[in-house]
Each structure stands twice: as structure tokens, then as C-alpha cells.
Amino acid sequence: MSRGRNWIRALADGEVSPVVPSVITADARLGEDVARLIAVVPDPGSPYHRARKGEVGLREAYALAEAVAGVAGAHLPEDRRRPIVAVVDLPSQAYGRVEELLGLHHALAVTVDAYARARTAGHPVVALIVGTALSGGFLAHGFQANQILALNDPGVVVHAMHREAAARVTLRSVAELDELARRVPPLSYDVADWAKLGLCDDLLEVGNADEPDGADVRKVKDALVSAVARARRGPRDLSNRLTSPGARRTRGASLRVREAMTAQWG
């Protein structure tokens, strides 16, 4: 089961096509726009054996960049450029030897660059988190979006590292980590807590996050239409993440840095 694939199929108006077996795209009508949807999905047959479960590996990073850069827009006026929706359901980046040898950091930089360029060129870029969005995989596919939407569902997790690994690295048990997360919001694995950090532009309630029905699809499409409109109205950099009501509550330290450094810079 791949939530990424299920949601792309459900949202698509027309065919779902693979760029490579693990990166699929489709078009969807959003109001007057035809958005390009992009997702990373599992490919059990991938020759990259560490990237068979939907991880963002070398091939996926390259295909994502191709897919994003391929959304034509140069001929359109800037306020009519096509929306790009990153449907996010990925366990992480690919952890492997060939990945490091060939420079996965560079491949992910190529993806990040492509998304950021689309955003600054006027394409509304929206991330729709339907499953897990972890670590470097999410940095590459989703985190450069103007707007980030997430389903409010236990299967939706946004984090820097999965629970077991984070516990190991910080020398804590999983139970201790969960207890700590109740007091320290950025540690939480609960998407509702994550949404309070000011990074989530809309937290969506759906009936079935695994296999969306017609009502779920209508609801999410409406939310995407609104997100596209907000993206067009908003800044083309990521400054809106600091002006959101959530950020004003939880990112006081960020705001303090920005104010102090701006004042001292002169």
C-alpha cells in the first residue's frame, strides 16, 4: 500500500504516469488551474537496493527535479503559472553506500534547487503530506513549498529522524523520547503538534487517509485550491513561515534572531 500512489490516483483528472517507476506524476484540475501532482512511491524492483520502499534516493531526486523543471511555465504570465503539488509520503532519504559514493547530497540539492526555482518563478508550490515526511527526503520533496498541508491522521508523521533512530542517537529510550515530546513540541511525532509550530498552513480531517473516498478528494481539492490562491497572494520566499500565528507562539527565538540581526546589520 502506498498512500502517495493512492492519493495521486484519487486526485488525478486523467492518467498517472511514471517519470521513473518510483516517481509518478498526474494532472489535476484545481479551480481554473491544472496542477501537476508529483509523488515518490515504492519500487521493489529498483536497482538501487536501498531505495525500494519509497525513499528519496539518487534516481528519485533526479526524477523529481526533472518533473518539477518540466512543468512548463515560461510562456505564461507569472500569476497564471501552473501549480505544483508535492504529494508527500516517504520514509526518508535512502541510506546506502552507492548513494554516498555518487553524492546523494548533491542529487537532493538538485531537487531542492528545482523546487525553489519553480516557487520563485511564480509557480504556486504546495506540499500535501499524506503519510510520513521524514528528514532529508522531506527537505528535498516538500519543504521548499510556499504552502504545506497535512492530513490530520495517525499515519502522518513529520520529523527529522524516525523514533527508534532518534532515541538511539540522543541516548534515550523511545518512551523517554515520547515523554519529553510532551514538554518540547519540536520533538513530537504527532502531526497535530507539528502543525502548531507554524509550518502547517492547513491541517485536514479526512475519512480515510489510506484510501480516500469522493468526499475526501473534494475536501482536499478545495483545500488545494485555497492553498494555491494563498501562495499566489503571498511572498515567493519562505518568510510566511515566520509570520504565521503558530510561529508567533512557538518560534519566538527565531523572531528574536531575525529582529536582532536585522537591527545590527544596519
Partner: peptide, 20 residues
């Protein structure tokens, strides 16, 4: 990792500002 999600968010913001 002690600041997990906010660390991840600021790295995305660093990348965006760097590109700018």
C-alpha cells in the same frame, strides 16, 4: 535532534535563503 522539527524547518529556510 534535540530540536528535531524546528531544526529541519530552519535547514529548509537556510537552503531557500542561500538560493536567494
Amino acid at each position: 535532534l534535540q530540536e528535531a522539527n524546528l531544526g529541519l524547518a530552519t535547514v529548509a529556510e537556510v537552503c531557500s535563503a542561500l538560493l536567494e
